[in-house]
Computed example of a mutant assay.
Amino acid sequence: MKVVVDQVKCVGSGQCVMVSEEVFDQRDEDGVVVLLQEEPAEDQHEGVREAARVCPALAIEIDE
């Protein structure tokens, strides 16, 4: 799995961080998503999928 985030689309809701804090974080100054792991471990895949599903801006893309 490879994860790509679009920081331009991100609205800073933080849903991704709440679902998968090992893979996603937010910038302190504006709350925009920061990708911590471009290729997360297999045990993190479901959390990443859920983060992509709940992202209100559709700023997370997953390449399986």
Rank of each mutant, 00 (worst) to 15 (best):
D30C: 09
E22C: 00
D6T: 13
P40Q: 05
D28S: 12
E50M: 14
K2M: 03
V54K: 10
D30T: 12
S20G: 04
V5W: 00
E64M: 01
Q44L: 15
Q26D: 01
F24K: 11
E46F: 01
H45K: 14
V23T: 11
Q37N: 10
V8S: 12
V4H: 10
A51N: 05
I60D: 02
A59Y: 02
K9I: 09
L35R: 07
H45Q: 13
P56Y: 04
V34G: 02
P56Q: 08
E50N: 10
G31V: 07
R49W: 13
G12N: 08
M18W: 13
G12Q: 03
A51P: 05
I60P: 02
E64H: 03
C55G: 09
E64V: 01
V48Y: 02
C10H: 10
D6M: 12
I60R: 01
P56L: 06
V23D: 00
M18P: 01
V8M: 10
V11F: 04
Q37D: 05
D30S: 11
G14D: 03
D43K: 11
L58E: 15
A52S: 13
A41M: 13
V48M: 06
Q26Y: 01
S20W: 01
Q26K: 11
V3K: 00
E38H: 04
A41S: 15
E38K: 13
D30W: 03
S13A: 15
C16R: 07
A59F: 03
E22G: 03
Q26A: 03
A52W: 11
V54N: 08
S20H: 00
H45I: 11
C55Y: 05
